[in-house]
Each structure stands twice: as structure tokens, then as C-alpha cells.
Design a protein around this nucleic acid. Structure first.
Lengths: 92, 92
DNA sequence: TCAGATTTGTTCGTATGTATT
DNA sequence: CAATACATACGAACAAATCTG
């Protein structure tokens, strides 16, 4: 019958900015605000793709972006994790 | 040395149709024709991947497709089984 | 209790093709 | 033509559950 309306993305659609950069920015914000604390594992790339309503390959680019920003590291077949920031006190 | 030529798949490659859907269709046909009777266990996913000449992850998608069609159910570390269809006479 | 094999489940890495800008 | 974005597909490694001896 009716189409299932796609859920609105949890991020602001900024005009003129690339999708992969916007996703990276949003995840960076989640890291900086403590939503994703150091050492924690990020959701899988397929899950993130669904969550943000973008393609798997676009999430891949966003993750590469975050790796280049030094915010996360990725272990093949394991997952991606938030780096412990320099000058950050350990989570006690 | 020489490459081992891949065995031809037991199914027709339909243009414009996705591989996982074609595999699901073929297995559905095997179920409907009695080749895979209700209650029987399907071959393992790695075996099916070899049999159809597709990747393991593609077989995973085909199995998910068959689960969504209500044709099979899957038990982790056990296998996938053909569901007993409603209105189907017992196998005598 | 333990070790090994088997099977499904999960995840990242990569490649291809199409469409759009 | 190049970069972005999407969808599918293949490959490899890791993980967890189950059974057997």
C-alpha cells in the first residue's frame, strides 16, 4: 500500500556540505560530548549506515575521515573504537 | 599454475535481477517442488555458497530473504530448516 | 572438564556498476 | 572528466553456539 516513510536523520542537513563530512562531524560531536566515550566501540558500519540513512560506502568514507582526524581507530573484523585522547584523564 | 575454472552455476543468470534474489528464488523452487521437503535441513551456508558459486555473504542475504518469506527458520550453530507449510498435507 | 570440529553470526576491506553534480 | 553517493557483491577474519569424543 503506502510507502514506509524513511525516518528523519538525527543530523542537520547542511546545504553544500558533503554527506560523508556531515556524518563525520556528527559522530565527532558524539565523541566530544561523551556520547561515545574513549575506548568505546562504535556501532558497526552497516548499522551506522541504517542509522544515518546513508549508504554503506558513504559511512566508510566518514570513518576514514574520523581516522584521519585521529579520533578513532579500526580493527578489521572487530570494529572501530574511540581513541583515548592525549591529555585526557583515564576514565577511572 | 593454471586457474581452476569455476563450475557453472545450476541456475540461469537473469539479467537485471540481484544474485541474492535469484538464489532465494531457486531455493524456493526447490522447496515448492519437494526437493527440500518440510522439516528437512538445508545444506550449510558455506556449502550453499560453493554450490551456487556465490560468496558466503550473498548466501546470508538469500537466507534472510527466505526467512522473510516465511519459508525457512534458522537455529544458530545448528542449521536452517524448511518450515511446515500451513495447509500442507504431512509427507505421508 | 576439555579440546576439536561444525555451523551460524558479525564485521571490516575491497570491487563493480549506475546515477548525479 | 572527476568526485560524490548509492546498492550490490565478493572476500577474509573473527566470534559464539552446539555437538562429539
Amino acid at each position: 500500500m503506502s510507502d514506509v516513510p524513511p525516518p528523519p536523520p538525527p543530523w542537520e542537513l547542511r546545504d553544500g556540505a558533503y554527506v560523508y563530512a556531515q556524518v563525520a562531524d556528527h559522530i565527532e560531536k558524539r565523541i566530544k560530548t561523551g556520547n561515545l566515550p574513549p575506548g568505546s566501540r562504535l556501532p558497526g558500519e552497516y548499522d551506522l549506515a541504517e542509522e544515518y540513512g546513508v549508504a554503506y560506502t558513504t559511512i566508510r568514507r566518514a570513518m576514514q575521515e574520523l581516522r584521519e582526524r585521529g579520533l578513532i581507530y579500526t580493527l578489521p573484523a572487530k570494529g572501530s573504537y574511540v581513541k583515548a585522547q592525549e591529555g585526557e584523564p583515564p576514565a577511572d
